[in-house]
Design a protein around this nucleic acid. Structure first.
Lengths: 127, 127
DNA sequence: TTGACTTTACGAAACTATTCGTATAGATTC
DNA sequence: GAATCTATACGAATAGTTTCGTAAAGTCAA
């Protein structure tokens, strides 16, 4: 079985995927509505992008109804793994430790977040 | 003082930056030599890209000699922080914990790496 | 059914990244 | 200094993303 090498989603594609991961599936109008809360974007712009994403295989489109219904073709988890893996290779020579270090310093990390991270690292150790 | 919003480097730009971070500063020929170890690329292609990067402000060029000498305009640390911060925002809703979790699962992390990460998280806690 | 409205289809423009061919200028060698 | 080699300058082709205008097709209410 050949593993398809999926290119990382572009920023706009990711914005659309975020909406669909959140609500499961939606029409273009619904997605465009969400997108517009962040940045004004024409309806046909979003439509076109979603059609292209369907061609690429990152969305699935149900055309049985007049209003086509779109859903993500990959899970958020897989996409996140892909993006982190990509960044890891191209900017951190594959060292997860370096990346984690930057993640901690890139942003003020709350005590709560830090506790979560600690817990996660500990539980990972047991494997 | 206005903080300039630096766009994230593209993949090719990053490859060039990697070389310069490694050796400090270099001519186009040297950079192109390194690049070509990974992927065959024409000399003028690398030249053009480095000129564009200089225009953009991600490289600094010393033209006092016939063979121009280029150096990175930002540190690897800053660039890594930027890239991680960007990914954090656009794909993890700003949650460092989620990103760290993906970093751990995106790749087999060695025991050594895991120990480093643990140490880092612990020392971070003291602040 | 007709008119208003919504949705999709199509095509193209604007923009960016990447690539490289060709021309020109500076250095080197004989 | 003429030939040759190396470097930069310039412009353009290609490819991919993002944008949207316009047209065609489907829906629905009066």
């Amino acid at each position: 079985m050949v593993k398809k090498e999926m290119p990382q989603p572009t920023n706009k594609e990711l914005a659309i995927l975020q909406v669909l991961w959140e609500i499961g599936s939606a029409t273009v109008r619904m997605v465009n509505g969400e997108i517009n809360k962040v940045k004004k974007t024409g309806y046909t712009t979003t439509l076109k992008l979603m059609q292209i994403m369907t061609e690429k295989g990152s969305l699935i489109c149900d055309k049985s109804q007049f209003k086509h219904v779109y859903a993500p073709a990959i899970t958020e988890e897989k996409a996140q793994n892909g993006m982190v893996g990509d960044l890891l290779e191209k900017a951190f020579s594959g060292s997860a430790a370096k990346l984690v270090m930057r993640a901690l310093s890139a942003k003020k990390v709350s005590t709560k977040e830090l506790a979560k991270i600690k817990k996660m690292v500990d539980s990972w150790e047991e494997k």
